[in-house]
Amino acid sequence: MLKSGDILQMTLKQNHKKYNCADIEKLAQQYLDNQLDENKKKLFNEHLEYCLPCDKKIEFELKLKEIIQKKSSHKEVTDTIKSKLSKIINDLN
């Protein structure tokens, strides 16, 4: 059975949990996609605050994600295509 002292120890341990670089690598994808829960996100951000190499890597990955979004966005959807698609919708019955 747990003694109150043990529980206190566990609580302290929990509160002082820190992510290391391996945790960052493991959780990077979920962080980039904003899929971490608040607690994990907080621990993740705390690590980035003091670990410059990880911070730089994550910053790069965020930028890459942004570039992929930007450079493959919907520029090729021309007005001709838009009007074709609108016509298809108008002809539905």
Binding site: S72, S73, H74, E76, V77, I81, K82, L85, S86, I89
Partner: peptide
């Protein structure tokens, strides 16, 4: 309508 560009792309 708001999703046509995404669908086509």
């Amino acid at each position: 309508d708001p999703h046509l560009s995404s669908l086509y792309s």
